[in-house]
């Protein structure tokens, strides 16, 4: 029983870490709080669902299609809504303050668009649902696939940031945008790539979610909140700590629900979210821990 819970916690932790990674990239390099992040997870989930049920395309293939689709959507959002604003400092300052509201509008559009197109019924499909048992844990193939992909993407991102020059310039933009520009980093390009990558990662997470859970047009918001919790706990731009925080949240949620009941799940997530923000009112960027 304990091992089973532990496994469930690891699975949801890996998922949270992945979703939060995308949010971290967008917030880190653009300073925009993407409240529509979870809705991109929803989009990825629907792409996988329809590809599988209508066309018989495996979710593994959908991983690639959603990556491209969501990245393209990120590019569109960047070019249409953000580029001009980010360009001038005065506008960018206002944009930062308004970013949340803009993405809020986007979130409502995506949710209701999906509900209009696909109806609000929850849906699911069966893929790799054969159960494998090892060491007292029973896991479906889809769960193992989820773990594998999530691990590959997060570790890949980690390695990229540590070992690749482009990764360093991304870290530089996250740390000090103005200084990065001075030392020759093309800030605009880094921002564009970050938003594409952030959106794509959310889409990939959506494909993984669709294999293991029921999906609805309104499934995104809890993921947004969970991602915020993870990013706030882990710290901005700190990808490694973000991954750890993802697992912490996965453990708290899984064991919390196991000790009480499923009705407490939302309360637990929102409660942690409110608590974390109240304890760190300076938000994602808080440096209070440093100034001991």
């Amino acid at each position: 029983m304990f091992q089973q819970l532990l496994f469930a916690a690891v699975v949801s932790g890996a998922l949270y870490a992945l979703v939060a990674l995308g949010l971290n990239l967008v917030y880190g390099s653009l300073r925009l709080l993407n409240i529509a992040h979870g809705d991109l997870v929803m989009i990825g989930a629907y792409v996988a669902f329809w590809s599988f049920t209508l066309l018989g395309i495996s979710p593994v293939v959908s991983l690639a299609t959603t990556t491209v689709l969501c990245a393209a959507f990120g590019f569109l959002v960047y070019v249409v809504l953000l580029k001009r604003q980010l360009g001038s400092p005065a506008l960018a300052q206002r944009l930062e303050a308004n970013s949340l509201i803009i993405f809020y509008g986007l979130s409502v559009i995506l949710q209701n668009g999906a509900s209009l197109a696909f109806s609000a019924t929850s849906r699911g499909y069966q893929f790799l649902d054969g159960v494998h048992s090892f060491g007292g844990v029973s896991a479906t193939g889809s769960m193992l696939l989820l773990l594998g992909v999530a691990a590959a993407v997060t570790l890949g991102a980690l390695a990229f940031l540590r070992f690749h020059v482009a990764g360093w310039s991304l870290l530089a933009v996250i740390e000090r945008k103005d200084a990065a520009a001075v030392v020759g980093v093309n800030v605009e390009r880094v921002q564009m790539i970050s938003i594409c990558a952030g959106f794509a990662i959310a889409g990939v997470a959506g494909v993984l979610v669709s294999m293991t859970q029921q999906i609805t047009p309104f499934m995104g918001f809890p993921f947004t909140i969970a991602a915020f919790v993870v990013v706030i706990m882990g710290g901005l731009g700190n990808i490694a700590a973000g991954i750890a925080a993802g697992f912490v949240l996965g453990f708290i949620e899984t064991f919390g629900v196991a000790l009480t009941s499923a009705t407490y799940r939302s309360i637990l997530i929102y409660g942690i979210f409110v608590g974390v923000l109240l304890l760190r009112p300076q938000g994602l960027f808080g440096k209070a821990v440093q100034a001991r």
Binding site: I267, Y270, L278
Partner: peptide, 30 residues
């Protein structure tokens, strides 16, 4: 406590707080 949180964090906090209360009342009603 809520008004100590500033800017975009206040904005998203109010949203999360409303959802928390909603879920608490739903639980209570159940």
């Amino acid at each position: 406590p809520v008004l100590r949180v500033k800017g975009p964090y206040f904005v998203i906090l109010t949203f999360g707080f409303a959802e928390l209360v909603k879920n608490l009342v739903m639980l209570l009603e159940t």
